[in-house]
């Protein structure tokens, strides 16, 4: 799958549109999980909505093409999203909060049946239940959940069940938008392990996993894109991003990942100052420059291009070869008091 130059904006009553996603491109091979990480308001969920055909009413796609395995290239501006028949069967969305996705008065089984029926009209109820039950068993989930109502399941179980149901039609691509953000750590882990199992056993061939949690992402993604203010600022293999990040924003995100490890005792980790920019009037040049500890005059004037870095790229003026790259800013030691 290739997505090129995707731009999305939100119309506002006051006039100036909010430029939520700006010229984002990526590709996704079979067997890959692409992780998209970024903080609130960076446009990651907007991107997911645009690519999965779940656009909000005031959302407008202003640029971009999507192609699948080089067969067809679809201009998503004309159609304002992916083709209708792709939804669910080719690209399936796993939403942020499963509770909201489920009708409280319908049993889980009814929901699964509806999903199957939407694309396979001939399948009857019994066959659909069998198919779903089989899948649940394969993934170590109890089949009795089919007879349960959503509120009878724990948040973690609900999210795992929705994951199974949204992949029942064997979609080519699963887009998971913050599926773990409302879960406790054990449920997060269970969901990620389940997704891995689905990948290993061929139930799922590729996925996009969107989250603000870089540590969690590193456990599932094969490659990671870091988004800031509607743009991808760095993309690379998971290993490179975690051990050899180049963009100052990526480094700040990594430094702020607090793991329960003796190495974070008795030190002070610097956070970023300021806030994410107002997307009605994004900053000139590099959008990160107002908060960047290494900002230079050029950063405010010109938009940095993508500097290739082995298997990925980063957009930063520090990388254009003329400037010396500062040491990683992971920690700052403090004299013990």
């Amino acid at each position: 799958m290739k997505a090129d130059n995707i731009s999305v904006q939100y119309e506002t009553r006051v006039g100036t549109p909010v430029l939520a996603v700006n010229d984002v491109s990526f590709h996704l091979e079979h067997g890959e999980v692409l992780g998209i990480a970024g903080e609130s308001g960076c446009g990651k969920s907007t991107l997911a909505a645009a690519l999965s055909g779940n656009s909000a009413s005031n959302m407008r796609i202003t640029g971009g093409t999507v192609s699948l395995d080089d067969t067809t290239t679809i201009d998503i501006v004309k159609t304002q999203g992916i083709p209708r028949d792709w939804r669910g069967s080719t690209i399936s969305l796993l939403p942020q909060r499963a509770l909201n996705a489920l009708n409280p008065t319908a049993r889980i089984g009814d929901y699964a049946y509806d999903v199957i029926r939407a694309h396979e009209k001939r399948m009857n109820r019994r066959e659909a239940m069998e198919k779903t039950g089989e899948r649940l068993e394969q993934l170590g989930l109890p089949t009795r959940v089919l007879k349960s109502y959503p509120h009878q399941l724990s948040g973690g179980m609900r999210q795992r069940v929705v994951t199974v149901i949204s992949t029942l039609l064997d979609p080519d691509i699963l887009i998971a938008d913050e599926p773990t953000s409302a879960l406790d750590v054990s449920s997060q882990k269970a969901l990620v392990l389940m997704l891995q199992k689905m990948m290993n056993e061929g139930m799922l061939s590729r996925a996009i996993f969107i989250t603000h949690d870089l540590a969690l992402l590193s456990n599932i993604a094969t490659r990671i894109s870091i988004m800031y203010a509607g743009e991808i600022v760095e993309e690379n293999t998971t290993n490179e991003i975690i051990h050899n990040a180049q963009h100052p924003y990526t480094r700040a995100l990594l430094a702020a990942t607090l793991e329960p490890d003796p190495s974070i005792r008795n030190i002070t980790i610097k956070g970023l100052s300021g806030q994410s920019p107002d997307m009605q009037t994004p900053p000139s040049g590099c959008r990160f420059h107002p908060r960047c500890p290494y900002a230079m005059p050029v950063c405010a004037q010109k938009v940095p291009g993508a500097t290739p870095l082995g298997s990925g790229f980063a957009r930063c003026w520090l990388l254009d070869g003329t400037t010396e790259i500062p040491d990683p800013i992971k920690h700052e030691e403090v004299v013990a008091s």
């Binding site: 002070t268 610097k270 956070g271 100052s273 300021g274 806030q275 920019p277 107002d278 009605q280 009037t281 900053p283 107002p290 908060r291």
Partner: peptide
């Protein structure tokens, strides 16, 4: 050292 917040953006 506590980081002082930079003045908020004009927006």
């Amino acid at each position: 050292p506590v980081t002082m917040d930079s003045p908020p953006p004009p927006a």
